[in-house]
Amino acid sequence: MTADPALRIVIVDESPLRAAILEEGLREAGYRNVLRLPERHDLLARLHAIDPDVIVIDLEDPSRDVIEQMFQVSREVKRPIAMFVDQSDSSTIAAAIDAGVSAYIVDGLKKERVKPIIDMTISRFRAFARLREELEQTRTELEERKTIDRAKGILMKMKGLDEPQAYALLRRTAMNEKRRLVDIAQSVITAAELLK
């Protein structure tokens, strides 16, 4: 068991779904002090009050620059020093950036204690990205299906075709013009609207 249950981990993420997935993963891994900050309002003051050991933040959140202010002041005793514990560990840094996550870690934390958190976060970010992609793909497919159905309906009505014939016509035209079936379908709908 590498998890250190006492570590204070803060998740800054405007996506409630991803934050929930992350929090769940960290809790499953045995971390008890996991806190979510969904809002950027007065972020720095809140982080100072919580005084976390690790801050995990979405790479695409502009508030990263706010967090960086925490470690510009050399007079502060305890402060996060870096995005990662050890600058020699560039493969972890690259993997995290690639996955869209950034993590700030308080100076003095040993690499072994942080590595499982980072690894878990990276895999959860990836899983979330996949989930979103799949959702997006499903939605696109559904919309394309509807477009093709509408085009088929138009062809059936205007040219007196049955459904398989209408579909075959769309398909043949797409192949001849080297375009996607859905694009041909969209052209049919546009043309029908113009000719109305």
């Binding site: 695409e60 990263r64 995005m83």
Partner: peptide, 9 residues
């Protein structure tokens, strides 16, 4: 979106 991103990338 952030200068930190620019540096890290």
């Amino acid at each position: 979106v952030s200068w930190a991103n620019i540096r890290d990338k």
